[in-house]
Computed example of a mutant assay.
Amino acid sequence: MGKRLVLWDVDQTLLDIGRLGAEIFSASFAACTGLSEHAATRGPGRTDWLAFDETCLANGVDPSEEAFRRFTAAQEAGAEEKYASITGLGRVLPGVPEIMRSCAEHPDVVSSLLTGNTRRTAELKLAALGLDGLVDTALGGYGDDRRDRPELVGVARERVHRATGTSFTPDTTVLVGDTLNDVRAAQLGGARMVAAATGSASAADLRAAGAEAVFDDLSDTGAVLAELLS
């Protein structure tokens, strides 16, 4: 163990739950703030914390950490309530089970998550679509750990070091994601970036942003694994 730390984004990289995520966010924001009618904000690849703060500011609400913690509790409850809908309406993206299983079984790979979701929400999504058990979620970086996504890289590395005694570096850490914010997290957090053009960013945009490797999707297990281990 210990040659490569692979950190996976969740939404639009591993799975797609359509509008359910936005619906859960909106309902949770309303429950937390009392604003049943509110302006939404957009920004693929944001942490939940940053998305909450930006939505607060867009609606004249002063964001606070206490309010954010109430929001995350509501959001996680909403994800649990919508579990059946995630199972029924969500889908796993091409090649994902195969490449995740390859990493899970590889003796030189530590595999976890780096996502804007909270850990509980991410775990619910993975479980709903049969991807649970393929990563060690205790070792990841999540959207309620820090506001700024690049900081999650260090959070994950520290958790891995505490749990395993292995210290990973920018040269031995790889992020897998689909957004320009994922690329930014790799660049500023210190990691290599393997991108999948399965979200809103095109392959050309991801390359221009600085991703070292870009795939249309993760279906070519051998090629993706080779990039993760290179």
Rank of each mutant, 00 (worst) to 15 (best):
E37N: 10
R147W: 10
A84Q: 15
S202C: 09
E65F: 10
A79K: 00
T164H: 00
A84P: 11
D108A: 15
L35T: 05
L228M: 05
L14F: 06
V176R: 08
L114F: 06
E76W: 02
T137E: 06
S202M: 04
A22Y: 02
P170Q: 07
A73K: 02
A195E: 11
E123C: 14
H106D: 08
L14R: 02
G95L: 10
Y83S: 15
G95Y: 12
D216F: 05
L126F: 01
V6Q: 08
D217S: 12
S102P: 02
L7I: 04
V109P: 03
L180C: 13
A211V: 07
E80D: 14
G177Q: 06
T33C: 01
T41S: 06
P44D: 10
Y142P: 00
H38F: 03
S64V: 08
G165V: 11
D178S: 13
S102Y: 04
L134K: 01
M100S: 07
G143F: 05
R149I: 01
S36P: 00
L218I: 01
A104C: 07
L225D: 07
I99F: 09
L20Q: 05
A31G: 14
T47S: 02
V109D: 03
I99M: 12
T72C: 12
V214G: 09
R120L: 15
H38T: 09
A40S: 11
G21W: 07
A77T: 11
L134R: 03
R42T: 15
D178Y: 12
Q187T: 14
R184Y: 14
T137V: 08
A208H: 00
D178V: 10
K82A: 15
A77I: 09
P170I: 10
A226C: 10
Y83G: 14
V155E: 08
G133L: 07
R162V: 09
V135W: 04
A223T: 13
G190N: 08
L139M: 01
S112L: 10
R119M: 00
V109R: 04
R149D: 06
E37C: 05
G165T: 11
D132A: 06
R192L: 10
